[in-house]
């Protein structure tokens, strides 16, 4: 058998969701459509359909997560799947078992879908080599968080009616952000124009980014690039960045890169403010902005369940 079977068969059923880099605009469209139906299911009195009855989903979380893990768990349960949660704490991983052994064990236990969060970039690609079912990347290191990007796309489209032609500004710690990378794939594929705004220490050389995303704009001037924006997405700033010497102080970061009401006022009147959570209010986003009418932060969380249901449904081959 040829190992690249399916490489040329673009219509083959998707097996894994590792990043958005191998999604066509059409496939993203279809998922967002399905997510809208799922959102309708979630609005019913009985929030459950029997689609994945008899299937086993393992949420394999090697890194702390609250919202993503619960979101996947609710999505699996709403589709009537058996959902098992596995966290690294207290597991065989702490006894020195390798990722490959863990995957083989879950395989033997009959898992159909692995949802995986891992601190190492690329870890889901390793799991995918050994797992016979589907692997969904729920965030790997700095690399990718495809389901977050899909729920962001869904939220924007629900609110603004389109994605194509929008001006999207992503602000913050781009270098270490898997959310930024997956959203870059998603928004650029769907025809939006994306601007990345970060201090130089938190993004790296412009040419490195443009090699993959040639139409991207990169700047460190937030006041300038926010003008006329349709979407502002700000990212969590980890305190470790200060300790690593990447920033002089939180105070300076907030002054030049924090999302304030004054800055939002320079954007388009309908501009959405987004944050993948968890937020450091008062650092990358001001508390009043986070709860303003333009903020869709809670909606992002709510939409996450519907989008993940849509993906699980798609992978189940129904």
């Amino acid at each position: 058998m040829s190992v690249s079977a399916g490489a040329g068969t673009a219509r083959s059923r998707r097996r894994h969701v590792l990043d958005l880099d191998d999604f066509s605009p059409q496939e993203i469209d279809e998922i967002l459509e399905t997510a809208a139906s799922m959102k309708e299911v979630l609005g019913r009195a009985i929030k459950q359909v029997p689609t994945l009855r008899g299937k086993t989903i393992v949420n394999m979380f090697f890194e702390e997560s609250t919202r993503t893990r619960i979101s996947f768990e609710l999505a699996g349960k709403a589709l009537s799947a058996n959902v098992v949660n596995f966290t690294a704490r207290g597991s065989s991983v702490e006894k020195g078992e390798s990722l490959v052994d863990t995957v083989r064990t879950l395989q033997a236990l009959g898992a159909d879908i692995l949802v995986m969060r891992h601190s190492e970039s690329g870890a889901p690609y390793l799991a995918a080599q050994y797992f016979h079912g589907s692997v969904i990347n729920a965030g790997d290191g700095r690399h990718a968080h495809p389901t977050q990007a899909l729920l962001d796309l869904f939220t924007v489209r629900q609110r603004l009616g389109r994605i194509e032609g929008l001006k999207v500004v992503i602000v913050g710690d781009i270098l270490h952000s898997r959310v930024a990378r997956s959203n870059l794939w998603g928004f650029t594929r769907m025809g939006a124009s994306v601007t990345l705004c970060a201090p130089h220490t938190l993004i790296g050389p412009e040419s490195f980014w443009k090699a993959t995303w040639p139409h991207l704009t990169i700047t460190s001037n937030l006041d300038e690039c926010i003008t006329g924006a349709d979407v502002i997405m700000t990212l969590r700033l980890q305190r470790e960045r200060m300790e690593a010497g990447l920033l002089p102080s939180l105070r300076e970061y907030t002054r030049f890169f924090g999302i304030t009401a004054e800055r939002v006022a320079r954007a388009a009147p309908h501009c959405l403010v987004m944050h993948p959570g968890p937020m450091n209010e008062g650092v990358e986003i001001m508390p009043d902005v986070a709860v303003s009418a333009q903020s869709v932060i809670e909606e992002q969380v709510a939409n996450g369940v519907a989008v993940r249901m849509a993906l699980l449904y798609r992978l189940s081959g129904e």
Binding site: M1, S2, V3, S4, G6, A7, H16, D21, A128, Q129
Partner: peptide, 18 residues
Amino acid sequence: LALVRAEGKAIQRSGRDR
């Protein structure tokens, strides 16, 4: 990337056959 996109069994570590 095509090697992980493909449907079917877990991908092989070497492509000797091909």
